[in-house]
Structures are given as structure tokens and as C-alpha cells.
Nucleic acid binder design. Structure first.
Lengths: 224, 224
DNA sequence: ATTACTAAAAAACGAGTAA
DNA sequence: TTTACTCGTTTTTTAGTAA
């Protein structure tokens, strides 16, 4: 079953009290609550069960169910997402700590063929260097994973006499609520989902007085 | 498409910023966000659109969408439901005002064949009469509609020499957080979804000092 | 009473593709 | 590039029913 649907059924079970204790839940009863047939209700519970979202047991011919910790976590994550959708529509908020990169950023960003494209997309020629941020916790890492799955604006790769310079995608962003810039994901990035690279017109470390380990917030625009 | 699913896609659109303004949303992009194919994303938007949850328009070959007021209301109702699921698991809260019924309640409740069944289910012989409550607003009416759709405990009808006394269903309830009782729905109820009938061992008007128009809260247990 | 299997019907999906 | 149609395939659903 669809994960989207599973969540909604879990919420229904929580409404019935199944988030805090074992509840008697005959499939005929669940059918009414879920708005499906008895057979489908039976199958839903079994699928939730095989995903370990729900614990079920039979007591003298009756089904009793309880949402597991995993199921509750699944719903809570979804509630977080909904809250975030209302709090930060059109944006992904990333928080982390300033960290040293491998220093390659400067070399790449300075390439004229990249500079022109950044100017087209972001409206400025970026400072030759990237600010690397190590994300704070798994929540922001998952947010980053979501962001990175989106297309963003395309930066095309190019070929010189010597070698090939790979493509990238970039998202418009605001750093510390003050500076306009971009978040860049190189197609062949050496970083995992815990690191993001930020570009801006200014040298951010100086402009914002940042040093390694300083906490930093980036508000990234989802839309194109 | 399933209403459950529609809501989740609406939330995704709100996350993208489509709850507050028209956003550019090519179906290829939505496909990534929704986790479906481009064709399915296209179909989802068209279905949301034909349900008037979403307004869509084409600007030079690109799809732009915005969640409508109806769509936002749909999601907000769902968020209310989720909050309620966490706040009042296993219960439906009904609020309303004490109101005069048609006085028939006393006649029915006093019938011995009903009394015995109430005793079996609720544990007491109810006072011969029902307290009628006019629900406060559409929210509680919809809660009542949900409750009434559930099976509850069955009260069987019976036949006397003269006539047939119809069946009913009853839910365990707490009135004003103090008195234990039940909410009764006669199968052939003369009331709509804006009225509920409450029974208890005591004469509630006297016991709780209630008069017509007084606000009253009932906490109804969903489970069986 | 229950739950849940089977089989047939209905709905949803995505590849290919037209416009 | 887009969107969205057709159509074959897969998935989901429910009626009937056994246990």
C-alpha cells in the first residue's frame, strides 16, 4: 500500500485510541471508520502490521490493534511536514554549522563558463568559493535530501581542451535572513546529504563574520 | 481519486507555496514532488482541479497552480482532525446547549425492555427521560455525524401487543466531565445531526442544575 | 460472531506519443 | 520544451464465502 495512505489510516487508528493502548477493532468496525469494505479493512490492518506500524492480536475471535512506536513516529514525521508546509511554504529551511570544505569550490566557481550561468540564474557573479555547511541533525538532512531531489535551476557542464567540468543545479537562497545567494549541488558531488554548499556575491565568512562551527540558517526557495 | 490521497497532494502543493500564490508547477516537477510519473502528476492536478481544490492555468506552455479556498478548507479540516486525534483519542467531544425535546424520551426510556438493555450496556437503569442538546456549531455537527456512523452498542427493538418499539444504538459518555451516562441514537430518530439525546441514572437537569440554553460538554467514547 | 481467502471487477499507473 | 491522450499492465477493491 501507498505510504501516503498508510499514514491516513494510522491517524484514524490513533483517533480510535489505538496510539496509546490496545483497542478492540473488528474489521467491520474499522471498515466504517476507514470508509472501505470489511475485506479491505482487514487487508489494511494486515499491511500496516507487516510494515510494523501496527501490532495486532486476536482475543476470542476479535481483532485488537495498537499503533507501534514505528507507526507513531511515521505519523509524527508527517505532522512535522504539515506544520512545515504551513510555516515555510515554498521554502526549505536548513540549519547547520560552518565547516571547512576541500577548497575545490573556489577553483570551480571561478570558471567563467560557470560564472555566466550563475549570473543568469541568481543575478550576480558569485564570489569564487563556497561556504560549506554541515547540517545540524537528521531532520535537516532529510530536508536536504528532499531539496536535492528537486530539479532546481540547471547549471550546464562544459568541456575545455583538458577536461570536462560537470553540471550542477542551484536553488535561490537567503543566508542568515540577510544575504541573497544560492545553494549548489554538483552533479558529481563529493559530499553526502549532510553537507550543503552555498554561494553568494560576497565572501560570506568575512561579510557575516563567520568562523568554523558557527551556527547558520539558510532559507532555500523551492520554486523555479 | 480517493479523498484521503487528494488531501496529501494538496498539502504537498501548500508546501510548494501554492496555498498563498500561483506557482509554476510543470508536471515533470510535480511528478518528483508527488513521487509519481509525469502522467500521473498531470492527472492528479486535473482531478484536484475538477474538484475545485486547485486552480490551474497555462502560461506560455507552463502549468501554474494555486490551491483554492475550498482546497485550503479541506486541508484545514484534516489538520483539525489530526489535532483532535492526538488530543482526544478514543473520544468524540460534543458541545452544545441544553434544549427542550418533544418529551417523548421519557415514555420510551421508561419501557422495561429498553431499561434492561441500558442496564446491560451502561450498568444502570436510566432516569426515564433524555436530556436534549443542540450542538454548538458545524464542527460539532460533523463530529456527531461521524459518531452516529459508528455501530456503538446495539439496543434491540421489540414488539408489544399494540405496536413496535424501534431499535437504537448507544455510546458511553461523560456529561460535563462529571456524570457517567450515554448518548442514544434511535434508529428512526426524529432529530437531525444537530441534536443529541443523553441518558443518565440521574435526572440531569436537576443533578447538574441545568436549564434551557446552558452550555454543556459531552465526552463520548468511540470504542466498544 | 469473527477474519481473510479467492476471483472478478474497478481503479490507478506509466510508457509511448501526439499536439 | 510543455501537457495530456490512449492503451496495456499493475494494483486495489469488493462480493462471495470458507473457516
Amino acid at each position: 500500500m501507498n505510504r501516503r495512505l498508510m499514514r491516513t489510516y494510522l491517524i484514524d487508528l490513533i483517533k480510535l485510541g489505538g496510539g496509546e493502548r490496545l483497542i478492540r477493532a473488528p474489521t467491520t468496525f474499522l471498515a466504517i471508520v476507514f470508509g472501505v469494505s470489511q475485506q479491505t479493512a482487514s487487508r489494511i490492518i494486515n499491511e500496516l502490521c507487516s510494515n510494523e506500524y501496527v501490532y495486532k492480536t486476536m482475543k476470542n475471535g476479535n481483532l485488537w490493534v495498537r499503533v507501534t512506536e514505528k507507526g507513531l513516529a511515521e505519523v509524527e514525521e508527517y505532522i512535522k511536514y504539515i506544520n512545515d508546509a504551513y510555516k515555510h511554504p515554498g521554502k526549505v529551511i536548513l540549519m547547520g554549522y560552518v565547516t571547512k570544505g576541500l577548497g575545490e569550490g573556489a577553483y570551480y566557481i571561478s570558471k567563467r563558463r560557470y560564472q555566466i550561468q550563475f549570473k543568469d540564474i541568481l543575478g550576480f557573479y558569485p564570489y569564487p568559493g563556497t561556504l560549506n555547511i554541515r547540517l545540524k541533525d537528521p531532520y535537516y538532512i532529510s530536508q536536504n535530501r528532499f531539496l536535492r531531489s528537486l530539479p532546481g535551476y540547471r547549471i550546464k557542464g562544459f568541456r575545455t581542451r583538458d577536461r570536462y567540468f560537470g553540471g550542477a543545479k542551484v536553488f535561490k537562497a537567503t543566508i542568515q535572513g540577510k544575504v541573497y545567494g544560492g545553494v549548489v549541488y554538483a552533479d558529481r558531488s563529493i559530499y553526502g546529504f549532510d553537507i550543503v554548499e552555498v554561494v553568494a556575491e560576497q565572501y560570506l565568512r568575512e561579510h557575516l563574520g563567520l568562523k568554523d562551527g558557527d551556527e547558520i540558517t539558510i532559507e532555500v526557495s523551492i520554486n523555479q
